[in-house]
Design a protein around this nucleic acid. Structure first.
Lengths: 210, 210
DNA sequence: AACAAAATTAAACAAACGTTTAATTTAAAC
DNA sequence: GTTTAAATTAAACGTTTGTTTAATTTTGTT
């Protein structure tokens, strides 16, 4: 909807990184202003307050997530399992492509007192579930997937695994083959590793004979 | 090692809850002092500083986790899959039994700059992996489990799923049968649901024919 | 009872916080 | 070129922050 100037975007970008690295309360508006190379007052001037700044980051990313979800709905020709595979890969790419924001989400979803940000998070998660649920259900009714699968928990595993991968990358990195050197190589290595793992996991539980 | 007085324990308990609910920087020592019904100065007097207080909480819980790991090592008579099942259940009980602390861990592991607390977290995670790795590897060599399983990622899924369940409980609650009313009922319901899900998941990926 | 050590308190500390003010510069419109 | 609005600044605002001080109370020991 709204558009942001370069200066506003640079504030949003810096704030997102710092909130991710140090937490919302661990980051001061002076930190943000300094790293974004703007006057402190500009943050209130543009966004109203520090809280509103966080909210802006969320609305900004969430809008993109909505688009993302709608795009996923258009994969209607694939078979159920391939749909799931496609969904997994897109989720991984999306979430690992905006790791700073995902860090903020990981943090904010833990806050006990409700807030606009908290509501946005669970709203989005609901929509994600609403995306996956019918794919699985349809395949279950068609006899392709098993009946006794807890889709809500499967979604939890999907989110949880990726969210756990983000801070664990420096550990997972150690198992990478020696030819993985550059940051790009490394990003591709992680994506592939998570993708392979999750696809196996989902295929196994959705189609395995018990 | 050290023992703590009732007053100290009450501070630790309150601080753990508040850190979990509002984050470390989102909680003031005045908040803690007030809820624990002690003078503000007592926190510095007992623990040195707010940072040291957090570190104390971590050392306190980690010591228990070490014991927990060592107990797990004694299940040597079970078959591989049952070992895994036992491990899953114990992890769930342990982690859902100290949800406040797990919230703090979820948050702290995201911090980019290293700290004593951060080191402790990854140290413990390494030990957890060292616990699971040989169980799977032995079973793989015995031909009971599949070869192509990424144990490190499996551990990531285990942690990630449970860590994701903690803040998602108010959502997962909605699917509970009507006879689940009390907090205890509800705790048991969640534990069982997560347990069932993770066991299916692990069994499927470890023993499924691809 | 007298003393020493530990525990507890209210008050004060400087530093950092988010936000606002009022003055100034830049840009746009006429 | 003048006028008006928007953007930008440095400085100050009043709180709140974590921590310390110094005085007092409690506790334990002889």
């Amino acid at each position: 909807m709204e558009e942001y100037s370069e200066k506003q975007l640079s504030i949003l970008k810096v704030a997102e990184r710092l909130f991710a690295d140090q937490g919302f309360h661990g980051t001061s508006v002076r930190d943000i202003a300094q790293e974004a190379d703007v006057n402190i007052a500009m943050i209130s001037y543009y966004f109203g307050s520090k809280d509103k700044l966080l909210e802006t980051i969320f609305r900004f990313r969430m809008e993109a997530s909505r688009k993302f979800i709608n795009e996923l709905l258009e994969n209607d020709t694939l078979e159920p399992l391939d749909k799931i595979y496609s969904l997994i890969d897109r989720f991984i790419n999306k979430m690992l492509g905006e790791q700073y924001f995902q860090c903020i989400m990981s943090r904010e979803q833990l806050n006990s007192q409700q807030s606009p940000v908290r509501d946005l998070i669970w709203q989005l998660k609901g929509e994600m579930l609403g995306l996956m649920q019918p794919i699985v259900t349809n395949a279950q009714e068609a006899g392709i997937f098993h009946k006794d699968v807890d889709v809500e928990m499967l979604m939890t595993t999907l989110f949880g695994t990726i969210h756990q991968v983000i801070p664990a990358q420096h550990i997972l990195k150690k198992s990478a083959p020696p030819e993985v050197i550059s940051d790009e190589d490394y990003g591709a290595y992680i994506r592939n590793r998570v993708s392979t793992h999750l696809k196996k996991l989902f295929k196994a539980i959705l189609t395995h004979e018990f």
